[in-house]
Amino acid sequence: MLAKRIVAALDIEEGRVVKGIQFEQIRDAGDPVELAVEYEREGIDELVFLDITASHEKRDILLDLVKEVSRKLYIPFTVGGGIRSVEGVRNLARNGADKVFMNTAAVDDPSLIEKSSKVLGSSNLVIAIDGKKTDSSWEVYTHGGRKPRGISAVDWAKRAERLGAGEILLTSMDTDGMKGGFDLELTSKVVNAVNIPVIASGGAGEPKHFQGAFEAGASAGLAASIFHYGEYSVNEVKSYLSQRGINVRPTD
């Protein structure tokens, strides 16, 4: 049966990993390719590369990186950050990204979802949603969490699905970075609103947090720092889950 996925995220700036990652085996902690290959060896199911390069002129560095990763990695990887057009989506796919995610641009122009899903195939287009709790629901934020957009995260997820999104990468801004667990309420609201898989993100600090997300219906759980800083290995997380009857791919 389909396994729940454990996903690691890498923040990339000008072709380098931004946050210092502590793997003993890694000589160059800033090299995304070396890190990606190490994560695959550890048994991660999928990787997400978030490009935060501000300078437009330097964005081609990302394409070279994607090309290199696609040659060396034998697990799926998703790339996003700063994509503004269908052409941007196409370029990433051509260079080897399995999936592409969009956030701000899709909110600005939802028709991009439809157009991009035609280019990629809808299974390969991921819509990233950053949500923040309000009195009654969760509001969508864009521009790296700086700009409130006045729309509900649950409604936006439904609309994205209708327009052709293949997955939702759902980050709770309230739990992100707190290591106290995923936002289970938000996760379950979105899971119940759409048919497509939901990747829960923001707040993973311990293996049991993934269990929570999966019980809330998420198909995948994404984490960064707990893996990067060696707090838990992928294997520890997966063993914990599999002992509790959650179906994960063994790390062998």
Partner: peptide, 10 residues
């Protein structure tokens, strides 16, 4: 419809 797309490790 509710099993599509089939994405992930199986």
């Amino acid at each position: 419809e509710n099993a599509s797309p089939h994405i992930g490790w199986n």
